[in-house]
Design a protein around this nucleic acid. Structure first.
Lengths: 235, 235
DNA sequence: GCGCGCCAACTTGCATGCAAGATGGCATGA
DNA sequence: TCATGCCATCTTGCATGCAAGTTGGCGCGC
């Protein structure tokens, strides 16, 4: 199951997805897997033709994608797939540090049984990461890591935080796929995750925030130089 | 000058605003000043008529407003103006605490002359608040306070943070107008703002974050009970 | 050979037409 | 009197037409 236009998916539980939803999902997926490479300029007409619909739903989906920061709609010139510059990664990490830090703090401040439920979930993902690491299974490691961070934010039960993180995750998906192959310090993450979990278990809000922040800041400080050294200017 | 669809305003410096932009701005303004009250259900046709355009630009503006969380587009039933529940205010405050806290920390970590520029700006706004307070000028106080918090986030030079805060500010504008009249502790804000400024001046990142967080948490803890006591269920 | 301007092709902005889904009221039956 | 079902009306989803803005290339003048 895919991410989809949360704006509807979670609000109006179910209804037949409209063509706009289809176009939105298809385009987003195409951007995620680089069928639409950054910098590529597509015409709405062409996309509409490929998706078997008229320009209208494609245009409306493009507006939503622009709002998500994934494309730019250039008046009378088409849809431009956005590229991410190193500076965007800096911005993204700062937002993540802020939101995940607060989320961890909030979780640790919740009643004991709720804390434990979240902590157990986080522990499952972290164990999966540990296992994947010993087996050198990058793909599984990445998925478990993603689940961990999603569960962390969802644990704070704040729809706006979830939405913010979802948007930013979508934006940085390609960069993440790229850096995943480069990282050589995956073991450190497991340990840092466990520290976060411990703080949540004992209800140490300040510690939870601090360890969540430290984890992301450390990751940022390993990855950004890596990107720099590869001279990556946009991804 | 009004807020406008930042998605374009800051990216493509200038171009004749399209009808969609007009519709977006007009509807947003109508929601801000409660011409469109929460819970009101409008038809696109009717809005289009009032704005002197066809349904198409109104519909596209509605999509953007829905993405901003200000309205819901109900399929084949019209546009519903969203109301804010107390729980939404809780969510909003948590996001603000996270983002402004990190922003203050980032500013305090910048080079001295940049810190000072931001601090001076913040000090001007705080002085204006102080003056407005002694003169019991609520409107001026509110505007200066708004400028202070905007400057705080803009000082961190992170477009995504600015955008997040802008979205949330738009959502909570009506609630802010309502609570402004109820508050009896405006003096405390001035003092707390000064504490933030001092930390920024001396480059105390941890202190800046902590005082920014404390400021917002204190405000939340005074306001939410106030809303509760008035039995406000949506605004 | 080189620069400049014009034009044809292309692209979207916006209006409108049509069909299908949603709604509220009225008539009908118990 | 009340519940139920049908239909007229309203509203949007989506396709398409037209006009205006943008672009790239070709030809003309130098």
């Amino acid at each position: 199951m895919m991410v989809r236009g949360r704006a509807d998916a979670d609000r109006d539980s179910e209804r037949r997805p409209s063509l706009v939803d289809d176009a939105y999902a298809a385009m987003k997926q195409a951007i995620r897997d680089s069928s639409f490479a950054p910098g590529y300029q597509a015409s709405e007409q062409e996309i509409a033709l490929r998706l078997g619909m008229s320009r209208t739903p494609v245009h409306e989906a493009a507006i939503r994608l622009q709002e998500d920061g994934l494309v730019r709609v250039l008046p009378r010139r088409g849809i431009l797939i956005c590229a991410l510059a190193p500076d965007d990664m800096r911005e993204i990490y700062d937002v993540i540090v802020a939101i995940e830090g607060r989320a961890a703090e909030l979780i640790a401040a919740r009643p004991e049984h709720q804390r434990r439920a979240v902590a157990d979930d986080l522990a499952v993902q972290t164990d999966a990461m540990d296992a994947a690491w010993t087996e050198q299974d990058l793909r599984s490691w990445g998925e478990a890591d993603e689940h961990f961070h999603r569960a962390l934010v969802e644990g704070a039960a704040n729809g706006r935080m979830i939405r913010i993180i979802q948007t930013i995750t979508d934006q940085s998906h390609r960069a993440r796929m790229f850096t995943l192959k480069l990282r050589r310090e995956l073991g450190a993450s497991v340990e840092e995750h466990r520290r976060i979990i411990d703080c949540i278990r004992v209800g140490d809000a300040a510690g939870a925030m601090e360890s969540a922040r430290t984890h992301r800041l450390r990751a940022r400080d390993t990855l950004l130089p890596l990107l720099d050294s590869f001279g990556v200017k946009h991804l």
